[in-house]
Structure formats: C-alpha cells, structure tokens
C-alpha cells in the first residue's frame, strides 16, 4: 500500500518528534528515504524507503523538504528523510587569468560552486565523468588541477 505524505511534521531536531522517533527506533520501526540534494526543491515525489515501502509525497507549495524531516509518524512506524552527502570537485586554477576563465566557464554551465582559498569547488550533481569531460582541455594543459579525488 502506498503511503501518502501531504505535510511535514517537523524534523528530528524538534524534541517531541525526536523522542517519538527514537522510541520507534528501539522497536525497529523507523524507515528512511534518501534524496540527492538537488531533489529537495521538489514538492511531488514517488519514492521507496530503505524497507521497500512505497511513498507518494505531495506537499503544498509553501513547504520545503529539509534533511531529517519526519515525513510520517504513526503508532507503529516513522519515515525520515535523509539527504545524500554531497561530493565536491575541487579545482585549482594555475593563475589569475585561468581563475577568471574557469569561473566564467563554470557559471556558464550553471555549475553550483563554492570558493575556498584559491580553489573553485563544484557540486557533483551528475556523473563525475561529465564534469571532467568539460574540463578535459584545461586539465590536460595543466591550466587547472583537480586537487582532490571526488567520489561518485
């Protein structure tokens, strides 16, 4: 049977919810669904929990999904949302000119980015190979260095 979710009850950070879920945990009655961060913007989703329960989420537009949200709580079951850990691709431009060029390039491709020291960090939201392919020439010519191996 499909479980319908039309509202969020709160998060595990809310004391009363945290305790209620914790009690169910002892009975092995807590299920989780895991979402990529990019999907937090969604209001309607059809998902499967880690225990295989079928979940249909339809939220009002003013509600936003967040990590650790309690999607469902009844006397013998809770369903919790988890957001997948994010991988970041760390790129180090060779010099100022390349930094400008790389920043423009990443923006043009709508890559989600952060900056740290002189590095550009790109959120890996698609297969890593698709990012590396776009960066192929820059990496091959040493204009940009991939500093850490991002997983995924």
């Amino acid at each position: 049977m499909t479980l319908l979710v039309n509202r969020l009850l709160g998060t595990l950070a809310d004391p009363w919810l945290g305790e209620a879920v914790h009690r169910l945990e002892h009975r092995g009655a807590v299920e989780t669904v895991t979402l990529p961060r990019a999907d937090l913007a969604r209001r309607r989703l059809r998902l499967r929990t880690d225990r295989g329960s079928d979940l249909a989420i339809a939220l009002p537009r003013e509600v936003a999904l967040v990590d650790r949200a309690v999607l469902l709580l009844d006397p013998d079951r809770a369903v919790i949302l988890r957001v997948e850990a994010e991988n970041w691709l760390r790129l180090r431009p060779r010099d100022g000119a390349e930094a400008l060029s790389l920043g423009y390039f990443a923006g043009n491709l709508h890559w989600r980015a952060r900056f740290e020291g002189g590095d550009l960090l790109v959120a890996v939201e698609h297969p890593l190979a698709t990012y590396l392919e776009r960066l192929r020439d820059r990496l091959a010519e040493g204009r940009v260095q991939q500093v850490e191996q991002a997983a995924g």
Partner: peptide, 9 residues
Amino acid sequence: PFPDFTAPA
C-alpha cells in the same frame, strides 16, 4: 519549512 496546518497540495 513547517506551516502548522495541513493545506491541500
């Protein structure tokens, strides 16, 4: 994040 009412989607 959490309006305290159940609004239709």
